[in-house]
Design a protein around this nucleic acid. Structure first.
Length: 857
RNA sequence: GCUGGGAUGGCGAAAUUGGCAAACGCACUGGGUUUAGGACCCAGCGGGGCAACCCUUGAGAGUUCGAAUCUCUCUCCCAGCACCA
């Protein structure tokens, strides 16, 4: 008997699959398509640990299953390779990020291949490849020309350690998502994408998606829609009035004072001379305070009176106007009507500053109150979103260059022209104001000034000129030093030759934008890139990407997209998943694609923790490397164990000894198979080895495994295969190899190598993955006998084996005859006497094929 | 504080969705095999009890012939958000 030695057979089959390209997807096919996608990784220098492949193995099982079910499956992999670690490494060592990235990718790919994942490597993508980021830049320009990108000086989240700005989504509990440093504020000119225009579309789109409720809810919270009213409060003895947003206009009679954010633009206009020094001091203090501090101060309320009063439009009462940092400039209008009787924070503030608390409310719902106020001419219904626009600039080197130049001459042209700039870009406060959340579906795209054509982005951002498509990709220049300056000036500013250029529009002197795009840019559209890479050789691939992408609603896009099944970590709930939905909607509005949601079904993965229950990390020294596990146990064992450990979407600690069970299982499979080879020979002499039990068990297992795979319940799928093997292995079973063929097919997605090996040992020439997924016969599964449970007053008192489909009458007869049951009605000995004599059956409950319950008194 | 998800043997977990709680696996115990260790095989493995039986799904109540599953109250844990007007 041959030993089971995974190392040899795994190497052999991996080579064969690659050589025969059996996992490459065909563009177009009569088969129905199925696009199953993993969130592509950032190829870090640390390589994969045993946690990463959990998702990849899960999608691999799905991919194999769907192929065998007769679908044309697209299952690609690529690299999200822009990002800080490569750049930080470059700063330390001088090695160009492209060089270290390439090395890391090679390592990742090797590790993935060791696991035997069935990716279509002919479609591999890499976001840092200029032929890839050409299109990231191209899409950025599409957003720009549609008026969805604008530049503004903003107090942005600034990570002093990474020396770069961060998006709101990248700030976690006041700390940098990447390095954990405290985030501060810095005023920097930034490119910002108007994701807020899509707030409503992003919110509504969630309803149709088959995503975990948790992720949808996180996105809903992030978008943060609230409905209410905007109300004008005139300021006494002044031309100004304060606009507030409230969800409770019905509480307006209880509004006894007003609070403005210290940053509010009206503050300097209304403050009285007596109060101005105090107010100024408070505003200065607030400026230095960061958001985090505001939060950490245990929500203690501070504020200063402005000296001014507003008039409550509901009752014409004069109420004082305060500034306080508990009112945020970035939400609503940065101003509130304070209703201390109703709102905790207002209450705390009122207590502290001795302001009146009045419990008077309108006897109306919020909606009715809005109407009532609307009639008085001081309010209108309003919707507000928490969602902020997406700060898109990074002051770093290793990212996509932003394909814009700044031309002073063109700036004059735009500013001197009479084309009006839309008001909404006038100020920050206006920027965050309420809006319907709906973009113009077809923004006017061309404006002529002095015979030069300007697009909407160029009008909105005077002086900024888009690179023409022919000049893409705008590649990153070589640098000697990657260190950020720390002043906010990006490293690219040092590349003088690169920065100084000519304006593609007017030919005048111009300078390039030196900020780069954030890490999320490349992943916003990568699912499209896999489709564009449909051809078989590398050069043709890139050409195809270059030539076909613009084709509106190309056949390829229509065939493959959207993604049918997407698997990845929940940590991307409001970053990648929101951003790529946004870009997809823009591409859809621009008629580049014919769908507006990229991922129809989403499944999240539970983290695999180190045996100590901690997150695996190099610094903790608790990393378990898949290479070592595979070296010791084989890839199939590794795959089985990863799927068997526990529910797919729940976190779980790696249990070093647990993997033994998976190995034993495959060992048994191996041995049973070899035995069956022998018994198969015997069967030619004695054909009387058919075993109906095994057949039934087989069909039942096929059913269970099929259903479980479809529900991502891999742990119970493996468990049921283990049960089958235990059954087959037990001495009372004799097995024909015929029956085992189906078993190999259902095992194959989980343990592809051993399955292929045994399949070929059975004499098959073709790969097992060319086989059809076995069907189970429901008739075979039906039992002709069932174990009928007999209960008395709901307690199990015995079971009887009865023919399937037994009627109630017969069942009752049989049950009452059973000795075990009878003793509960008739006293047998003194010990049983107590309370048991003269039992009368009050009621009988009968569930066909399941149980019979006698209710006795 | 708000939102979402949880709590079942020593551990990871199952439970056809209201019908035999603990499948499958890990660990453990006893035995076999072995020079020894490992590997492997057999048996056992929620608690109590010699047994008949009794008890057991975070706590308590309820609905029901019957509850891990449904309802209510509470406790604790995990995740996300958080001065969002």
């Amino acid at each position: 008997m041959a030993e089971y030695s995974p190392k040899e057979i795994e190497k052999k089959w991996q080579a064969k699959w690659e050589e025969e390209k059996i996992f490459e997807a065909a563009d177009f096919s009569k088969k129905s398509k199925f696009f199953v996608l993993d969130m592509f990784p950032y190829p870090s220098g640390e390589g994969l640990h045993v946690g990463h492949p959990r998702g990849y193995i899960g999608t691999d099982v799905i991919a194999h299953y769907m192929r065998m079910k007769g679908h044309n499956v697209l299952h690609p992999m690529g690299w999200d390779a822009f990002g800080l670690p490569a750049e930080n490494y470059a700063i330390k060592t001088g090695v160009h990020p492209a060089v270290s990235t390439e090395k890391n990718i090679k390592r990742f790919k090797e590790q993935m291949k060791l696991i035997g994942l069935s990716y279509d490597w002919s479609r591999e993508i890499n976001t840092t490849d200029p032929d890839y980021y050409k299109w990231t830049q191209w899409i950025f320009l599409l957003l720009f020309e549609r008026g969805l990108a604008y530049q503004e000086t903003l107090p942005i989240n600034w990570c002093p350690s990474c020396k770069t700005g961060l998006a709101n989504e990248e700030v976690v509990a006041g700390k940098c998502e990447r390095c954990g440093a405290e985030v501060t504020k810095k005023n920097i000119k930034q490119w910002v994408l108007k994701i807020t225009d899509y707030a409503e579309a992003l919110l509504e789109g969630l309803n149709e998606l088959d995503w975990p409720e948790k992720i949808k809810e996180m996105q809903r919270n992030w978008i943060g829609k609230s409905e209410g009213a905007e109300i004008q409060f005139p300021i006494s003895n002044s031309q100004f009035s304060i606009k507030v947003f409230t969800t409770r206009p019905d509480t307006i009679f209880g509004a006894t004072f007003m609070v403005l954010a210290p940053e509010h633009e009206l503050v300097e206009k209304i403050v009285t001379p007596e109060q101005s020094s105090q107010v100024e001091e408070y505003r200065e203090k607030t400026k230095i305070k960061m958001d985090i501090e505001r939060q950490l101060e245990d929500k203690k309320k501070t504020g200063v009176f402005t000296g001014a009063y507003a008039i409550n439009p509901a009752n014409r009462k004069e109420i004082p106007i305060y500034i306080a940092d508990y009112v945020l400039p970035s939400y609503g209008y940065g101003a509130i009507m304070a209703v201390p009787a109703h709102d905790e924070r207002d209450f705390a503030f009122a207590k502290k500053y001795n302001l009146p608390i009045e419990e008077i409310e309108l006897d109306k719902t919020a909606k009715q109150a809005t109407k009532w106020l609307e009639k008085k001419g001081c309010a209108k219904p309003a919707i507000n979103y928490k969602l902020r626009d997406w700060i898109f600039s990074r002051q770093r080197y290793w990212g996509e260059p932003i394909p814009l130049v700044f031309c002073p001459e063109c700036k004059k042209r735009v500013e001197n022209s009479k084309i009006p700039r839309p008001q909404r870009f006038a100020s920050e406060l206006a920027r965050v104001a309420m809006r319907a959340g709906k973009p113009k579906s077809n923004p006017k795209s061309k404006f002529k000034i002095q015979n030069l054509e300007f697009n909407l982005g160029e009008i909105l951002n005077p002086g900024w000129v888009a690179l023409p498509e022919e000049e893409l990709p705008l590649t990153l220049p070589a640098l000697e030093k990657y260190e950020p300056t720390g002043t906010g000036e990006p490293p690219l500013a040092q590349a003088k030759d690169w920065v100084e250029t000519i304006c593609p529009k007017c030919g005048g002197k111009a300078i390039r934008e030196t900020n780069t795009m954030p890490q999320w840019a490349g992943s916003c559209w990568y699912f499209l890139a896999y489709i564009m890479l449909g051809e078989q050789n590398q050069k043709a691939k890139i050409q195809k990407l270059n030539s076909k992408f613009k084709i509106q609603n190309s056949r390829l896009i229509k065939y493959w997209l959207p993604v049918d099944f997407y698997v990845g970590g929940a940590e991307h709930a409001v970053l990648h998943l929101l951003y790529s939905r946004f870009w997809t909607k823009v591409l859809s509005d621009a008629k580049m694609i014919n769908f507006d949601e990229p991922f129809l079904k989403l499944q999240t993965i539970g983290l695999i923790l180190a045996p100590d229950g901690q997150k695996m990390s190099k610094s903790r020294g608790n990393v378990i490397n898949p290479d070592e596990i595979i070296e010791k146990y084989g890839a199939d064992t590794f795959r089985i164990y990863e799927m068997f450990m526990g529910p797919f979407d729940q976190p779980i600690a790696w249990e070093p000894k647990g993997i033994n069970g998976a190995r034993r299982f495959l060992q048994k499979v191996w041995e049973i198979f070899e035995k069956s080879q022998i018994s198969n020979l015997k069967s030619q002499i004695n054909s009387n080895v058919k075993n109906p039990n095994i057949q039934k068990e087989m069909h039942r297992t096929i059913k269970k495994v099929s259903e479980d795979i479809e529900q991502m319940k891999f742990n119970t799928a493996v468990a049921s295969m283990m049960e089958f093997v235990n059954e087959v292995q037990s001495p009372r079973s004799k097995v024909q190899s015929q029956r085992l063929e189906d078993f190999l097919k259902i095992l194959a997605p989980f343990a592809p190598h051993i399955s292929e090996e045994m399949w070929s040992m059975l004499g098959h020439k073709e790969s097992i993955f060319k086989e059809k997924w076995p069907k189970y016969d429901p008739k075979i599964i039906i039992e002709n006998e069932v174990n009928l449970v007999i209960q008395i007053n709901g307690k199990v008192r015995g079971t009887i084996i009865v023919p399937t489909g037994l009627s109630e009458k017969e069942a009752v007869n049989l049950a009452l005859k059973s000795e075990k049951i009878q003793k509960w009605f008739t006293p047998l000995d003194s010990k049983h006497l107590t309370g048991r004599e003269d039992k009368k059956i009050q009621k009988t409950i009968f569930v066909k094929n399941k149980l019979i319950n006698f209710v006795v008194e």
